[in-house]
Design a protein around this nucleic acid. Structure first.
Length: 1028
RNA sequence: GGGCGGUUAGCUCAGCGGUAGAGCACUACGUUGACAUCGUAGUGGCCACUGGUUCGAUCCCAGUACCGCCCA
């Protein structure tokens, strides 16, 4: 069968993929011939995802490692799977429902909504899997995992264990006290109405404003305000009845709990401890807040005084906590001003008492938003607040001078001081809306308690992070780790396995001491107690388990409550309602079996990264003791981008060490971010996104993979343009055509390495050994670019440019048989070594060029070593190559027509040169386009060519231009002369001879000798030219 | 403000103690038994700057300038 002129990637890729799949070629352990395992966990793409260039890069590198190990006989597992991606997926499905005009998720309810997501996943969830297959990713697809598998409501086909693992870990960490619930200030996304973690917040600098307002002192008090310069001289002294503050967020003034100044700030020392008035809100309920001293305010920034809104700013929160300032929440989940809770009048009254130092208890019901602002969006509220303060004359103003252009009259006006200034603003990385710090009940992982082993493991090298610079990033983050907010107010995710029940054991409603509730006591509980009852929380893997825990709890309650049946209801309201009805029922029936104790489950789900943090063990069947867990854990290499070192790598380290007692992987290879050809980050808004699939369509998957691999220098961001991919595609064509040439000349692959005798064959066999060693070294040290570029240069620059050309004349001679066998073997080694990088074209060539026992995917990685390098053959071929290049260069420079065949006159040659010439004459004749070499002398109309140990003359007759030839030789002379001078100078330096390594000195001497030989020949040629 | 990178041919980047390489682009020539998705020969670099260490520095160290990224 004859081969086409180029590789039809599109047709072949689909066919070859199908063959791999049919043969189960990627199954864990396929092609294993030794006991060592090699395991890679894919960074699970989002189930909503589609392949972007970063995935293509990431998975190409993983695939190279995996295919390389599989070919070397390791028991190899590349574990694929997908992440359920809480927010992203919920967003996609909600949008689809909206687009289809369907009722929204709140209308259809949680269970139906989750079902809809599962339906969606069945329809379109494997998009990215199919795209990864197109890239050639050799994952064990039969093991494809999903971070929500096994969750309640999961359909058939999704019965994996992942949910069990997640819940198991939550319960475990809960019981150890590492997971806890608390009311804290968290990052709140007003679009998705959920808490998010610090990492999901993107701080960006945006244009903003700084407003300056006066907070009048209470009761008309005044003080001497004194400003001094650096030398302590007074620059300003005035009597003030206010304190000026600057803010970028005026709407939060409504919830201020204090004004803070630095303790060392003498300007405000007289008024620390006094009260001032917030200059906004209904006049009759103006609120007073204390002026406090705290280290947080920077005396040199703004006025040096800072308003403290503990419930809406992280810095203020810290100040408030330190100083016992109440936290007044102003906004609801959508970022609108609160409309719930007490009236403003009542709220202001409570807050004022608090400001005077009274203990006012829980203030969550206090709503300090004036009635006219309630329900307004936060930005509308901001405008209104600014207008009101300005109208009242309490904005700090500046005198503004304007000169009338016509009359020249000066016009003075006081205008509010509003500074335009860039501010850092937090945005939700998914929603893109401004994040609001919000005081809410959330679940946290006390990461400080589990971070130690994760730090230790990297410090002592049990897990290596490459390139090393990322170790510092890892340490820096983990050493300053904050608690991790893991609860999300979403529906798609692992629901937190905590249930709540009313605490009926509080003293107020306990019985009178006889261990049983009489009717009066029961009535008290029914009427008043339930509403005020606190909650107890219990954590267990499922309802059955948690029911037992609650039964133990209520066993201690007075009769007859202690026999109540534990039942699950939707929420607290439902629980109160049901408990009341059950008590009422009991009141009538006196039948204790009618008594119910309702409990409700925490509605929140876990942060997606909590489950993906368990990816290494969850995919291997943990918490069951599976053979896979036994065999493949800890895994070997994690290949990932630096952007998820914190999100994912650090958390996997912490979690695996905590629950499985070992590191999740031995090596983390961190690659760069693929940028566009100008080095810009790819983004939809910039429109510079490169779609890997269209590149695959146009150039083939191998070309894309080769390009990305060639650019994968450690620690650098690859910059990708279509030109690069085109170059790699050309390389595919190149090796294809070299194979085609071989086939046309009767070369077959699948042969054992022949014991070749001809220098050319011995030379190329040695070159194969060299590149094999270099490729293994490069891959072993994750220098993917070196592996790719080395193979590229070898195949193109050695095999195609020289070996194939040398073989052409050999095919006509007595060495034809040996040369065919050698070429077959050489090309096989190329296919084998290129296969991890370019799996498709190599698999295709493998099949087309010989009888094969297995597909190339299961080929045996070459092991040929340095013993195959024949130094003599090497020297000789390098001499031949040098001569050919010298002749070509001379010809081209002298303008000899490419087709013209010249005589090659040997004017001088040493024994080695003569031997090389004799052994390779046909090659030289052909490639240099010269007639068989013959001894002679240089003469008129000849140009000179030198090679180590030999000089030649090429008669070009009338073509010669003496001046041009002189110039050419002088140019060469100058070049070599300069090099030789440098070397001579170095050798003349006694310090060099004393200090440099012997090897280096020897090398330098050899180099100089060669150059001097060169120079002598050039001089001779020039002399001759001049003589004629 | 803290941390981490980068600065090498026109462009994109390798190299990281012995005086510089690749691909692309460019110029000239060229269809010779596979390949024009090609071949041959060229052009092109004070390796950002200033000091230091060294026999020797693009490479190591310190500083400067500019450009990125991450965290506040």
């Amino acid at each position: 069968m004859s081969m086409d002129k180029s590789f039809d990637a599109r047709a072949a890729e689909a066919r070859i993929s199908a063959e791999w799949e049919r043969a189960n070629a990627f199954a864990a352990g396929a092609n294993a011939s030794r006991t060592e395992t090699f395991t890679v966990m894919i960074p699970p793409p989002n189930v909503t995802g589609s392949l972007h260039i970063g995935h293509a890069f990431n998975n190409t590198l993983q695939d190279i490692l995996v295919r390389w190990h599989r070919m070397r006989g390791f028991d190899t597992l590349w574990q694929p799977g997908q992440d359920h991606a809480g927010i992203a997926t919920q967003m996609v499905v909600e949008r689809r429902m909206a687009d289809a005009g369907e009722p929204d998720r709140r209308q259809i309810g949680r269970d139906s909504f989750v079902q809809k997501i599962w339906d969606w996943k069945r329809e379109s969830g494997d998009t990215i899997i199919n795209q990864l297959k197109r890239l050639g990713a050799s994952c064990d697809w039969s093991r494809n995992a999903f971070t929500m598998s096994g969750a309640p409501g999961a359909p058939a086909g999704e019965e994996g264990n992942f949910h069990d693992a997640v819940i198991r870990v939550f319960v475990d960490l809960y019981n150890k006290g590492i997971i806890y619930r608390g009311k804290r200030l968290v990052n709140w996304d007003p679009h998705f109405e959920t808490a998010i973690s610090d990492l999901e917040v993107e701080n960006r600098e945006v244009p903003g404003h700084m407003w300056h307002f006066r907070y009048p002192l209470a009761d008309g008090e005044t003080y001497e305000y004194v400003e001094r310069d650096a030398e302590g001289r007074v620059t300003l002294r005035e009597t003030r009845d206010y304190i000026a503050i600057a803010t970028t967020r005026p709407e939060t003034m409504l919830g201020d709990g204090a004004v803070a100044v630095h303790p060392s700030d003498e300007r405000y020392a007289p008024i620390v401890g006094k009260l001032c008035e917030i200059p906004v809100g209904p006049k009759e309920h103006r609120r007073l807040i204390p002026i406090i001293a705290d280290d947080y305010p920077d005396p040199d920034f703004g006025s040096g005084a800072v308003k403290i809104t503990g419930a809406h700013d992280f810095n203020d929160y810290g100040v408030a906590m330190r100083n016992g300032i109440p936290l007044y929440a102003l906004m609801d989940g959508r970022g609108a001003m609160r409309a719930d809770g007490l009236s403003h009048a009542d709220s202001a009254e409570i807050a004022t008492r608090a400001a005077r130092g009274e203990d006012v208890g829980d203030v969550s019901n206090v709503n300090l938003v004036p009635e006219d602002l309630r329900g307004l969006d936060r930005y509308d509220a901001r405008r209104r607040v600014i207008e009101a303060i300005t109208a009242e004359g309490l904005a700090v103003t500046l005198l503004h001078k304007e000169i009338d252009p016509e009359t020249g009259a000066e016009h003075l006006e006081r205008r509010p001081l509003i500074e335009d200034k860039p501010i850092m603003q937090p945005f939700g990385d998914r929603s893109g809306v401004v994040i609001e710090p919000m005081l809410t009940d959330q679940w946290f992982v006390d990461t400080a308690r589990i971070v130690g082993p994760a730090l230790e493991a990297v410090r002592d090298g049990r897990t290596r992070i490459l390139p090393e610079q990322h170790r510092k990033v890892y340490f820096n983050w983990l050493e300053n780790i904050e608690p991790w907010t893991i609860s999300r107010q979403l529906w798609w995710g692992h629901q937190i396995p905590v249930w709540y029940g009313l605490d009926l054991g509080v003293a107020d409603f306990a019985d009178d001491g006889d261990g049983a509730l009489d009717e009066v006591e029961m009535f008290g509980l029914l009427v008043d107690g339930l509403v005020h009852a606190g909650e107890r929380q219990r954590c267990a893997a499922d309802f059955e388990a948690v029911r037992k825990l609650f039964r133990d709890d209520i066993a201690g309650l007075p009769q007859p409550l202690e026999v109540s049946r534990v039942v699950e209801v939707a929420d607290r309201d439902a629980a109160i309602d049901l408990l009341a009805r059950s008590l009422a029922d009991y009141g009538l029936s006196q039948d204790p079996t009618h008594l119910l104790y309702p409990v409700w489950r925490d509605p929140d789900v876990l942060d997606t990264w909590f489950s993906s943090g368990l990816w290494p063990i969850g995919t291997l069947g943990w918490p069951d003791k599976t053979p896979e867990m036994e065999r493949y854990f800890p895994t070997d290499v994690l290949v990932t981008g630096f952007d998820i070192i914190f999100f994912w790598v650090a958390r996997m380290m912490m979690m695996q060490l905590e629950v499985a007692g070992d590191v999740p992987f031995h090596t983390v290879y961190v690659h760069g971010l693929v940028r566009d050809e100008k080095g810009a980050k790819m983004s939809k808004s910039k429109g510079n996104v490169i779609d890997p699939l269209s590149l695959i369509d146009e150039y083939g998957a191998d070309a894309l993979r080769m390009t990305l691999t060639g650019m994968a220098a450690m620690g650098r961001d690859p910059k990708l343009g279509p030109k690069h991919v085109e170059g790699a595609r050309n390389f595919v064509t190149k090796i294809w055509n070299a194979s085609r040439f071989a086939q046309m000349n009767g070369v077959r692959g699948g042969v054992a390495r022949p014991d070749s005798q001809h220098t050319v064959n011995r030379w190329i066999i040695g070159e194969v050994a060299r590149i094999r060693i270099a490729t293994d070294e490069a891959l072993a040290s994750y220098r993917f670019n070196d592996a790719a570029n080395g193979l590229y240069a070898f195949v193109w620059g050695k095999v195609c440019d020289w070996y194939v050309e040398f073989a052409k004349p050999l095919f006509d001679g007595e060495d034809a048989g040996e040369t065919r066998a050698t070429m077959g073997w050489v090309l096989d080694q190329c296919y084998l070594m290129l296969h991890p990088i370019m799996p498709f074209v190599t698999e295709e060539l493998w099949a087309l060029t010989g009888e094969r026992a297995t597909m190339l995917v299961h080929g045996d990685w070459p092991t040929c070593g340095a013993e195959l390098i024949d130094e003599a053959a090497d020297r000789q071929m390098n001499w031949v190559i040098a001569l050919i290049e010298a002749v070509r260069s001379a010809r081209a420079q002298m303008g000899v027509p490419a087709g013209a065949r010249l005589d090659l006159i040997v004017t001088e040659a040493d024994a080695a040169a003569r031997a090389a010439l004799a052994a390779n004459a046909p090659l030289i004749e052909r490639l240099a386009r010269v007639n068989p070499p013959a001894d002679g002398v240089a003469g008129k109309g000849m140009i000179a060519v030198a090679a180590p140990g030999a000089s030649f003359a090429l008669p070009i007759g009338d073509l010669i231009d003496v001046a041009a030839e002189t110039t050419r030789l002088q140019k060469a002379l100058a070049r070599s002369g300069k090099d030789a001078d440098g070397l001579r100078k170095r050798l003349a330096n006694p310090k060099f001879v004393e200090n440099a390594e012997a090897e280096v000195i020897e090398e330098t001497r050899e180099k100089l000798a060669a150059l001097e030989d060169d120079l002598a020949r050039l001089h001779a040629a020039l002399a001759q030219l001049a003589a004629l």
